[in-house]
Deep mutational scan, measured.
Amino acid sequence: VTTYKLVINGKTLKGETTTKAVDAETAEKAFKQYANDNGVDGVWTYDDATKTFTVTEMV
């Protein structure tokens, strides 16, 4: 189990959260659900070296 981080660069919501998951795919599903629940829709990137997902909403 690995800890993954999500950085949110939203128009109205900004911040970070973490989740523990067995792999990046599982973490991504959890983060996308979290973003969807919070009304964040944007471009996703993932950095495997730092285990960090970033979602950026276009203005």
Rank of each mutant, 00 (worst) to 15 (best):
T26R: 07
D37S: 09
A24V: 13
L13C: 07
D37Y: 10
T54I: 12
K51D: 03
I8R: 01
T12N: 13
K5V: 08
N9G: 03
V22G: 11
Y34M: 06
D23C: 04
T2S: 10
A27R: 00
D37F: 13
A27L: 01
W44C: 01
A35W: 03
V59W: 09
N36T: 10
T12Q: 15
K51T: 04
Y46D: 00
T56M: 05
V55E: 00
K32W: 05
T3S: 07
D48V: 12
D48S: 12
Y46S: 01
K51N: 10
V7S: 04
Y4V: 00
T45P: 00
T54V: 13
G15Q: 13
A27N: 00
T3Y: 09
G42F: 02
N38L: 10
V55Y: 02
T56C: 04
V1Y: 13
T19N: 05
V22H: 06
K32D: 02
A27H: 00
T17V: 14
V55C: 04
K20A: 10
V59Q: 13
Q33A: 11
T26W: 08
M58L: 13
E57V: 05
Y34N: 02
T19S: 06
T26A: 15
N38K: 15
T54R: 05
V1N: 10
N9T: 13
V7H: 05
V7P: 00
I8C: 04
F31H: 02
E16V: 03
T45L: 09
M58T: 13
K20M: 14
V40G: 02
K32M: 13
L6I: 03
K20W: 15
L6E: 00
E57H: 04
K51C: 05
F53Y: 06
T12S: 15
T18E: 14
K11T: 14
T17M: 10
D37L: 09
T3Q: 12
A49M: 11
W44V: 02
A30W: 15
N9H: 06
K29I: 13
V40K: 02
W44A: 01
A49C: 05
T50S: 15
V55M: 07
E25S: 14
E16K: 04
G15T: 15
A49P: 09
K29C: 04
T50M: 10
N36M: 12
V43D: 09
A21C: 04
G10L: 15
Y4K: 00
K29N: 11
N36S: 13
E28C: 04
M58H: 11
G10W: 13
N38C: 05
E28R: 11
E16T: 06
V43N: 08
V7E: 05
K20P: 11
Y4E: 00
D23E: 05
V59I: 13
D41S: 08
Q33Y: 11
